[in-house]
Amino acid sequence: MSGADREANTPLAKPVDRRKALEMLAGGLAAASQLASTCSPLSSATPEERERRLLEWEERLKGNFRLMTDEEKAETIERLERLAKLRRGVDVSISATEAQPGVLFGYAFNISKCLGYRECVAACIRENNQDRKSNMQYIRIFEMEQGEIDFLRADATFEHEVPADGHFYIGTQCFQCANPPCVEVCPVQATWQEPDGIVVIDYDWCIGCRYCMAACPYWARRFNWSEPEVPAEEINPVQHYLGNRLRKKGVVEKCTFCIQRTRAGRLPACVEACPTGARVFGNLLDPDSEIRWVLEHKRVFRLKEELGTEPRFWYFMD
């Protein structure tokens, strides 16, 4: 377990000067915003409201996750957990588990096996706290006519009984490219590739310019056009800072191979939910892993190889 994780539950350590200054600034801004929005003195707000405003401003002034010290990570996690309680009334636990050395995640999708049930989609939505209002989905299952792999003619909106005769199914999601164009274009380095290959987003650092969405050749990124809504009782409280923690409006998000699960040794929710075993996940650096078996024993292909993005997501057939 990483240092950040261990510290996540310890009380704040002695503040340093810079942080103290930031806290004071946040306090001032919180008070100012209170005054501006309600035109009433700060004292009339409930203590919870005041605490929430203070925390929100401290959150707005924090730095990029990658530049945070372990202590700062622990602090922001504590704030975020508290904010989830104050805003939504739920107890969440946010981890900052780092990548394991010697692990590089890879994914394979068996297009002979997928039958279009979309169990993966449903599991993904619940696991990753995706916005229910806009029906956000990271995974797209395309129904293709036999004889071609043509996304233009494929249909992802099928609602009839599956598998349909004469058709096959092919799923897409973020491919965690080894050479990700989305990371390249981000003007503020709010998205990057972790050592285990997962391309992550610091939701609090994202400015919402959506350049990454234009740059992704696989249409893997989603934007929170409005404040995301997840019913409190459906919130998955087991969260990761770079994964399924509650997002806010105006930022980009995407599949992270369920970083909150996979960093803890578990399989991604889509793999676990697939009733046909069409999804294979594992460590590319482990010669005994399932993903390595697939790469060595099956003929595989990737989408848009000509772009040089090197997806870590392969398709294969029986």
Binding site: Y117, R118, N135, A156, T157, F158, V162
Partner: peptide
């Protein structure tokens, strides 16, 4: 664990909700 040994093919059924384009 996945297949019914007496009827191993997966049945046709309605999928879970799809995307709203």
């Amino acid at each position: 664990g996945c297949h019914n040994p007496h009827n191993p093919a997966f049945p046709k059924r309605l999928p879970r909700p799809g995307p709203s384009i």
